[in-house]
Design a protein around this nucleic acid. Structure first.
Lengths: 196, 196
DNA sequence: TAGGTTCTGGACGATCCATTCCAGAACGAG
DNA sequence: CTCGTTCTGGAATGGATCGTCCAGAACCTA
């Protein structure tokens, strides 16, 4: 009869993610993961496979969470679409502005470190970008339907811009540009959206 | 009488940078640097100090080059300011669109990996962002003077937006979003700049 | 040519690190 | 309570890696 595991997998994965987020894939040792989770390495390897498998696991989970959060925030009646778009982009910017330790986004950092050499990370990142683009485009189309955005504007183009702005503020925030410039860029981008 | 060095320092630094660019700081071994430069480790350590010192050297040089290139492209008579701004942002996007290996920008990747833990990298990144912001703002002001951009628009806000767009396209390109979306975002951003 | 000084490269030492191993413990069915 | 099975943790293994060391070579002046 199998003995059940003693630890909470969800919590262990969260702690592992935080460590990978802070020190990157190559810069994190399995001893670090063991220390922050309180588990022995035998348990970590038994439960999650090797270091790479664990990283893929937490990275995939995080990418999924990002998309789920965007979907949650970018769904509703047409009338509220523009407000939701603005709130979402401001939310992304606020996260960056609040990031005084300049840790940056886990998804962006994992991508920066590994996308060129790890196909799994590369694919997952691309899938995530396309999903976010799709959600933004859908919401822009909704805003256009109820007359809050210019009906002749290309929704995919505007979606690309908003995605790029979201990712750009994360990048410049991580690089050390002040919160004021970050907020300013977002306000400007939103103010420039074409109205009817 | 001192014996001159046998190797070309500039070339060695360039090769070292390429290796750090490809595999990151933690993911690069000094043996890798030795291999791609053709030097022994005794020579590397003798000439450049330790691994961290070498990384700082090539990172600082690269940040300087980025700013110098931007300054070169964002200088001239007022009449050409808007064209230079557009060309510069398109140039940044074109680099991203052409990056099929998804290597991304060395400065962005170094920042992503190390800014949270390495003060020297953090400072250099912040300085670079501020310099780029200043150059963009100056050029926007020039475009406003000759009537190509709305004179009442806040140049710093527009500069923040263009910087964020430049960094954002690099981030989404690295993440795997297609060249079409990248180009689209840039075209849209430039099209939305406020004209008189 | 000789000699003083510096450069060179790769073996080496010390430490690091991913992963395995296994004795002991925990679990639950019979 | 017993016993079969799985879990656990941390020592051990084997290889990795940073940085040092030093014999030999290269350089250049006298």
């Amino acid at each position: 009869m199998p003995r059940p595991r003693k630890f909470d997998e969800t919590q262990v994965l969260e702690l592992a993610r935080e460590q990978f987020w802070t020190t990157g894939f190559a810069g994190t040792r399995m001893d670090d993961i063991a220390r922050v989770t309180g588990l022995g390495k035998g348990s970590l390897y038994g439960a999650f496979g090797d270091k790479e498998a664990l990283f893929h696991r937490v990275f995939d989970d995080w990418c999924g969470a990002i998309v789920a959060l965007a979907e949650e925030n970018l769904t509703g009646p047409d009338e509220g679409a523009l407000a939701r778009l603005e709130a979402y982009v401001r939310f992304v910017a606020a996260n960056t502005a609040a990031d005084v330790g300049r840790r940056g986004c886990f998804q962006a950092k994992g991508t920066a470190e590994l996308a060129a050499s790890d196909e799994s990370v590369a694919d997952r990142s691309a899938t995530t970008m396309r999903a976010l683009l799709g959600l933004l485009s859908r919401e822009i189309t909704a805003a256009q339907r109820c007359g809050d955005l210019a009906p002749d504007a290309d929704p995919d183009a505007l979606a690309s811009l908003l995605l790029v702005v979201g990712r750009g503020v994360e990048a410049v925030g991580k690089a050390g540009l002040g919160a004021e410039a970050v907020t300013s860029a977002v306000d400007t981008a939103l103010a420039l959206l074409p109205r009817p």
